[in-house]
C-alpha cells in the first residue's frame, strides 16, 4: 500500500513540476548554517525509521503468508516468551533513541546559542502582520538580512501568541505577549524565502506571511540606508501609504469603504463621525493624530476600543505622512 502513497505523491510532484521550492523530496532548500545538521539528523532518523518499518512490515507479511490458517491445522507450538529475546528488543531501541536524543540536543544547542557578534533586529508580531525593526529605527514588513552574517531576532507580540517560522532556515520560535523571545540564524544563500506564522492566531493566521530577503554581500547596508530614507525620498502621500501598509494599519482599517475591526479610512478626512460616547466629531489632522497616539480616547460608535497605541512607535514626521496619505483623494490611495 505504500506503493499507493507514492503513486499519489508522484502524481502530486508531476503536477507541480520538479522541486517546487528547490528542495529535496522531504525538505525545503538549506539556507542557514543549522539547516545542514538538521537535515542530516532528519535523514538519519528517516533511515532508522525506514529500516524498522520495513522490518516490521516484512516480518508481518511473511508470517501472514507462511502461517496462514489452513483447514484443520493448528498453530505450531512455540515458546510464549523468551526473556533474552525480549530484553534484546528492549535494549536496542534504548540505545537508538539515546543516540537520536544526543544528536538532536547537540543540534538544538547550536540553534539556541547565538554568536556574540550577531546583528540584532527587533520583531513584533500582531494580528496579522510582522514588523521588523532595524537598529536605526527603520521598520519594514519583510525581513531583510545580510548573507553570511549571524542575525539575532528579539521578538515580542502586541496581542496573542504568534510563531516566527522560516522553513528554509529550519528555525521556529513562538512570539509571546508579555515577554521577549529570541532566535538566531545565519543565512547562507542570497535569495527570497517564505516566513510563516506557525502558531494559530485567528482569522487571517494563514495570511500572516512575510518574505525573508537575504542580500548578497555588501548590499544589505545599501538597501537599509535607502529604505530608511523613505521619508526624504518619497512624497509624504507615498511615504504615508507605505507606513499605512507596513505598520499594520491596514489590518484593521480598509481603504475600500468596508468596515473591519476599525472604521474604513476611505475618505475619512473631513468626515463627520458619531462617537461611542454620543457626540460627533469631524475628522481633522488633530483627531487623526490623537487616534494614533491615544487611540481609545475617542472611539467611533460601533467599534470596540481595541487599537494599540502608537505612542513612541511612530515619529512625528511619520504621523504627518500618514495624515497626508489619509487626506489625499481616493485615487491616490488606490494606486497599489
Amino acid at each position: 500500500m505504500t506503493a499507493l502513497n507514492f503513486v499519489g505523491l508522484l502524481l502530486a510532484r508531476i503536477a507541480m513540476g520538479p522541486d517546487p521550492d528547490d528542495g529535496s523530496f522531504w525538505m525545503p532548500p538549506q539556507v542557514s548554517t543549522v539547516a545542514r545538521s538538521v537535515d542530516w539528523l532528519f535523514n538519519f532518523i528517516l533511515a532508522i525509521s525506514v529500516f524498522f518499518f520495513i522490518l516490521i512490515v516484512v516480518v508481518m507479511v511473511v508470517f501472514v503468508i507462511k502461517y496462514r490458517r489452513r483447514e484443520g491445522q493448528q498453530a505450531q507450538s512455540s515458546p510464549s516468551h523468551n526473556t533474552a529475546l525480549e530484553i534484546t528488543w528492549t535494549v536496542i531501541p534504548v540505545i537508538i533513541v539515546i543516540v537520536i536524543f544526543f544528536f538532536g540536543f547537540k543540534g538544538y544547542l547550536d540553534m539556541a546559542t547565538p554568536p556574540a557578534n550577531a546583528y540584532e533586529i527587533l520583531v513584533e508580531g500582531q494580528k496579522w502582520k510582522w514588523s521588523f525593526n532595524y537598529p536605526n529605527g527603520y521598520v519594514d514588513e519583510n525581513l531583510h538580512v545580510p548573507v553570511d552574517r549571524p542575525v539575532r531576532l528579539v521578538m515580542s507580540s502586541a496581542d496573542v501568541i504568534h510563531s516566527l517560522y522560516v522553513p528554509a532556515f529550519r528555525i521556529k520560535q513562538d512570539v509571546v505577549p508579555g515577554r521577549y523571545t529570541k532566535v538566531w540564524f545565519e543565512a547562507t544563500e542570497p535569495g527570497e524565502y517564505d516566513l510563516f506564522c506557525a502558531e494559530y492566531c485567528g482569522t487571517s493566521h494563514s495570511d500572516m506571511l512575510a518574505h525573508v530577503i537575504v542580500h548578497p554581500p555588501g548590499e544589505f547596508e545599501i538597501w537599509l540606508e535607502k529604505a530608511s530614507n523613505f521619508l526624504e525620498t518619497m512624497t509624504p502621500v507615498d511615504a504615508g501609504r507605505k507606513l499605512f501598509q507596513v505598520r499594520g494599519c491596514q489590518q484593521c482599517h480598509s481603504m475600500d469603504g468596508s468596515a473591519k475591526t476599525g472604521p474604513t479610512m476611505l475618505g475619512v478626512f473631513g468626515r463627520t463621525e458619531n462617537m461611542a460616547d454620543g457626540g460627533t466629531i469631524t475628522v481633522d489632522e488633530n483627531y487623526i493624530r490623537e487616534s494614533i497616539l491615544e487611540p481609545n480616547a475617542r472611539v467611533v460608535a460601533g467599534f470596540e476600543p481595541v487599537m494599540p497605541t502608537y505612542q513612541g512607535r511612530l515619529k512625528d514626521a511619520e504621523i504627518m505622512a500618514i495624515i497626508e496619505y489619509l487626506k489625499a483623494p481616493a485615487g491616490a490611495s488606490q494606486e497599489e
Binding site: V38, F42, I45, S49, G107, Y108, P167, R170, A198
Partner: peptide
C-alpha cells in the same frame, strides 16, 4: 517512528506546528 523526528529537539523545531 515519526514520533522520533518530533522528540528530537533540532528536527522538532523545524517540524513543530
Amino acid at each position: 517512528l515519526t514520533g522520533l523526528f518530533l522528540g528530537s529537539l533540532s528536527t522538532d523545531i523545524h517540524l513543530h506546528d
